[in-house]
Computed example of a mutant assay.
Amino acid sequence: MDGIKKILGIVWILLGIAAAWFGITVLGLPKLSSGKQDDLVFGIIIMFILTPIITGGLLIFGKYALQGEFSEENA
């Protein structure tokens, strides 16, 4: 079971990297450069609030899973 948790730790880290890329390139930058005020507000919220929270959470969760923090013997 600990092996599966470590593999899923890698998956969470990869998802965190993918979420950062998606949040910046697909949702953030195009909205910031569109010129509309509604898009600007949405782009700022995505780029500076949601993307760091989502990415940081996934990366930290993956790091802890790789370190074995969720193993049965630590309970």
Rank of each mutant, 00 (worst) to 15 (best):
M1K: 14
M1G: 12
D2R: 14
D2A: 10
G3V: 10
G3N: 14
I4W: 08
I4N: 10
I4L: 15
K6I: 03
K6E: 08
I7P: 03
L8W: 07
L8Y: 06
G9W: 09
G9Q: 13
G9F: 12
G9K: 09
G9N: 15
I10Q: 02
V11F: 10
V11L: 14
W12G: 05
I13F: 06
L14H: 02
L15P: 12
I17P: 06
I17T: 04
A18T: 13
A19D: 15
A19H: 13
A19E: 13
A19P: 13
A20L: 09
W21P: 00
W21E: 07
W21M: 08
F22M: 12
G23T: 02
T25M: 13
T25L: 08
V26T: 10
V26G: 05
V26D: 02
L27M: 07
L27E: 05
G28Y: 01
L29C: 02
L29V: 15
L29P: 06
L32N: 07
S33Q: 09
S34P: 09
G35L: 05
G35H: 14
K36C: 04
K36G: 11
D38W: 07
D38C: 01
D38M: 06
D39H: 11
L40G: 04
V41T: 00
F42S: 10
G43Y: 00
I44M: 00
I45H: 13
I45F: 15
I46L: 11
M47F: 03
F48E: 08
F48A: 04
F48W: 00
I49T: 03
I49N: 01
I49S: 01
L50V: 15
L50Q: 14
T51W: 00
T51R: 00
T51Q: 04
T51G: 00
P52G: 11
P52F: 11
I53M: 13
I53S: 06
I53V: 11
I53A: 14
I54Y: 03
I54T: 12
I54N: 07
G56M: 08
G56H: 09
G56I: 06
L59I: 09
L59P: 01
L59E: 05
L59T: 02
I60M: 07
I60A: 08
I60Y: 05
F61V: 03
F61I: 14
F61Q: 06
F61A: 11
G62E: 05
G62K: 05
G62F: 13
K63Q: 05
K63M: 09
Y64Q: 11
Y64R: 15
A65I: 01
A65Y: 03
A65D: 00
A65H: 04
L66S: 02
G68E: 14
E69T: 02
E69I: 01
S71N: 15
S71I: 00
N74S: 15
N74A: 15
A75R: 14
